[in-house]
């Protein structure tokens, strides 16, 4: 029996790919990586360094049509005698894993944050306000791993990359266009996120947030009203109705910390809150708090980071 890890390599390999392989390795069986598209062999063979014994790639599939990917993965489950399939819980997994669950009659756990203990797996529920322990009743299992729950572990080995044909059929969904700002760090993958809310008063004041983010190599985010008013693009909105993130460090300036905002960020390892109101609920969820005016504190923090980087 083996564990099959589906890797999204459409834009190269993200850290989440190595996380998923590392997770697969922890389950104790042989780990086989499966991907599609045109990423080159040299890149894909890096998956071996994290524990994959081989990488299968179907080069005939060039988009993320969920029906095609479901057929591809189901075919590899069969040919590689896999009893477990791992995804990173990204947007492709959200479309494909449920289909695969029905096709294979395999129980699906989405948003896993830990390796199994006994026969249950810990997941985030109630938008991060609680954890559930879920058991899969079927013999085949599908686990979709929440990004940034595991640190990738290298083990220095390598692996081969083999062409694979999953007989995936036609795509029913036609991709017309991709709109993506260049050079930005995608929010779900960012290890540090600098975020701001209505306390910043207007879009013209985001320069200092971007400066701080740049200094930290961080992605930028915002609260919902900020995206709704149009001060920032919608894909930056974090929270219950926006993106859920779990970076190592989340810095929030001028955000009150409403429960719906917290729902998207309370998985962060460390939270820093900058707010002028000592009653702001966000301080209760924070590790470090700065009671002060963001317009003064943020530039000072950026300077302090610069100084720290220069002396290290």
């Amino acid at each position: 029996m083996s564990t099959l890890v589906y890797i999204n390599s459409r834009d190269g390999l993200a850290k989440t790919a190595y996380e998923a392989i590392t997770y697969g390795k922890k389950l104790g069986q042989e780990v086989i990586a499966l991907t599609s598209g045109s990423a080159d062999d040299a890149l894909l063979s890096k998956l071996g360094e994290y524990g994959a014994s081989k990488v299968l790639v179907d080069r005939s599939i060039q988009s993320d049509d969920p029906q095609q990917l479901t057929r591809l993965i189901a075919s590899a489950v069969d040919s590689e005698s896999a009893n477990t399939v791992i995804f990173s819980h990204d947007l492709v997994a959200k479309a494909v894993a449920p289909r695969l669950s029905v096709r294979l009659k395999a129980g699906l756990i989405s948003g896993a944050i830990d390796v199994p203990t006994g026969d249950t797996i810990k997941v985030n529920v109630f938008s991060g306000k609680a954890f559930g322990n879920v058991k899969i009743n079927s013999s085949k299992k599908i686990i979709s791993l929440l990004p940034n729950s595991f640190q990738p572990e290298e083990n220095g080995s390598s692996c081969s990359v083999e062409e694979y044909n999953g007989n995936a059929g036609d795509a029913k969904i036609t991709l017309l266009e991709t709109k993506k700002p260049e050079g930005e760090i995608p929010l779900p993958e960012a290890e540090i996120v600098v975020s701001a809310g209505r306390g910043l008063k207007g879009s013209e004041n985001w320069g200092m947030i971007e400066d701080l983010a740049k200094e930290l190599g961080a992605a930028t985010a915002c609260s919902r009203p900020v995206a709704d008013i149009g001060w920032r693009p919608h894909h930056e909105h974090v929270g219950q109705t926006g993106v859920a993130i779990r970076p190592n460090l989340y810095i929030a300036a001028g955000i009150s910390g409403a429960i719906q905002h917290l729902a998207g960020v309370n998985g962060s390892k460390v939270i820093v809150v900058i707010n002028t109101d000592e009653e702001a609920p966000f301080f209760k969820a924070a590790d470090y708090g700065v009671l002060g005016d963001a317009f003064e504190v943020i530039p000072k923090l950026t300077e302090a980071i610069k100084k720290f980087k220069a002396s290290n």
């Binding site: 306000k129 322990n133 058991k135 301080f283 590790d287 470090y288 700065v290 000072k300 302090a304 720290f308």
Partner: peptide
């Protein structure tokens, strides 16, 4: 059903927030 929820846990209470002087970002 293919899955069963066996139980739930709540996250550990956060330890108190450490307040930092706004003039001491270092």
């Amino acid at each position: 059903p293919l899955t069963t929820y066996e139980g739930y846990t709540l996250p550990d209470a956060k330890s108190a927030c450490k307040m930092i002087d706004p003039n001491n970002m270092d």
